[in-house]
């Protein structure tokens, strides 16, 4: 059984791309969240092994969501998926508890490698 992943991104296209790549590589995508609120909710409900987190999203941004999830579960493994040029935000996300980050647009093998490293 592959690791359970929660995908968080506000664009449907990015969620789909991520799902395809992950499923092809043996991960089980248990849910998709469109914003920070949903991510926090789904995390509590499903307790996935890994979370991918976009930073800029409506309603609740990724950093707030990371903080909330980490407060709930300090063991949570969250990987930030950021756009280019978000250096300060990425650093803030890392300081908030995200384990690592990857930069969009990514190559499929990169995201897999990243999740492997973080997921152990």
């Amino acid at each position: 059984m592959g690791k359970k992943v929660l995908i968080t991104d506000d664009t449907a296209f990015m969620r789909m791309t991520l799902r395809n790549v992950l499923e092809k590589n043996g991960y089980e995508v248990v849910a998709e969240a469109e914003d920070g609120f949903q991510a926090v909710e789904k995390y509590q409900e499903l307790k996935p092994d890994l979370v991918t987190m976009d930073i800029t999203m409506p309603n609740m941004d990724g950093i707030t969501a990371i903080k909330k999830i980490m407060a709930e579960d300090p063991q949570a493994k969250i990987v930030v998926v950021s756009a280019m040029g978000q250096k300060a935000l990425v650093i803030e996300a890392l300081n908030s508890g995200a384990k690592d980050f990857i930069v969009k647009p990514f190559q499929p093998d990169r995201i897999v490698e990243a999740l492997q490293k973080v997921g152990g």
């Binding site: 280019m84 978000q86 250096k87 990425v90 650093i91 890392l94 980050f101 930069v103």
Partner: peptide
């Protein structure tokens, strides 16, 4: 990409 953050 974002090498500075890696360094960080």
């Amino acid at each position: 990409l974002l090498k500075s953050v890696r360094a960080y």
